[in-house]
Design a protein around this nucleic acid. Structure first.
Length: 282
DNA sequence: TCTGCATGAAAAA
DNA sequence: TTTTCCTGCAGAG
């Protein structure tokens, strides 16, 4: 089974998939669970004109409907949220099904089920823009300036491991990319942002773009180089796809030192004390 | 079958 | 800083 972690790459992958599935078609929308009943009624029968992702936020845009502003569906999966899709008549809804979208295709109906999201709401274009204004640069968006995040890091006393999870500094990084990116650039997670060398940050940004683009293509987070995997390139399994994330107590793939873990920004952080020394990055 | 933990983030205290 | 949202999986028993 694929381990689809909803960090930014998963959301961009969903936006791409939903674009193919929904754009240019009218959707039948329901909220069997009832928590989004009013919103589903408003978009029911409307045409989807676009899908987009920014960080971990997903948007579906709907064509103007009579007597109203254009509507935008905003979804944030949070920790538990999940989309499922399938072809043919959908099964009768079971359990807490927040939103079901059904579209007609040449080969019959396709359905899209959303469960457990942190956010599933209709917003106006203006409200969406306000939301986006709170987010930092997204490595997966083509127009992003690679230097846009630098001031927020280099002026901060906060640990770089905290800054990387702050969505207003960088949008889309989750706990896995955080730990892996810090390892790949030899940065101790506790090092203050202002202590990190700007050239190291610049390299980390471009590395992050590469890693996350690969994540969009594959649907997985693989950050290990082939020579550090137990299996050859292209055959990495979950067990060897990370350097430090989830590997507390195991030997570092590069130097053999035991990987350690701690809490940072209310989340578990993993690092190699030898490859990521406290005085690195300066 | 039960328990704890996990990718996230906002609200409460 | 802690709680809550509320899902799914792995491991224990």
């Amino acid at each position: 089974m694929m381990w689809l972690v909803p960090e930014g790459h998963s959301i961009h992958r969903l936006a791409r998939r939903h674009r193919r599935l929904l754009v240019g078609r009218r959707i039948n929308a329901t909220s069997p669970q009832g928590r989004f009943a009013d919103g589903a009624a408003l978009i029911d029968g409307a045409e989807v004109v676009g899908t987009d992702a920014w960080g971990k936020h997903l948007f579906h845009s709907y064509a103007d409907h009579p007597g109203g502003d254009p509507l935008v569906l905003h979804v944030h999966l949070g920790l538990y949220g999940k989309f499922r899709e399938g072809r043919g008549e959908p099964d009768p809804p079971r359990g807490a099904l927040r939103l079901r979208l059904v579209t007609d295709h040449e080969d019959g109906p396709h359905w899209l089920d959303l469960r457990g999201p942190t956010a599933c709401e209709l917003v106006t274009a203006t409200e969406r823009d306000l939301l986006l204004a709170r987010l930092g640069p997204d490595p997966l968006r083509r127009s992003t300036d690679p230097a846009a995040w630098l001031p927020r890091v280099t002026r901060s006393r906060a640990p770089v491991g905290t800054l990387l999870l702050d969505q207003s500094v960088v949008a889309g990084i989750g706990n896995v990319y955080r730990a892996e990116l810090l390892f790949r650039h030899g940065l101790d997670p506790h090092l203050a942002g202002r202590e990190v060398d700007a050239a190291v940050l610049d390299g980390a940004w471009h590395d992050l773009v590469r890693l996350m683009r690969a994540g969009v293509r594959s649907g997985r987070i693989v950050t290990t180089e082939p020579e550090h995997r137990e299996r050859p390139a292209g055959r990495a399994r979950r067990v060897d796809s990370h350097y430090v994330y989830g590997r507390a107590g195991l030997p570092c793939r590069v130097c053999g030192t035991e990987i350690v873990d701690d809490q940072l920004a209310a989340r578990r952080i993993f690092w190699c004390p030898s490859c990521q020394p406290a005085d690195a990055g300066r």
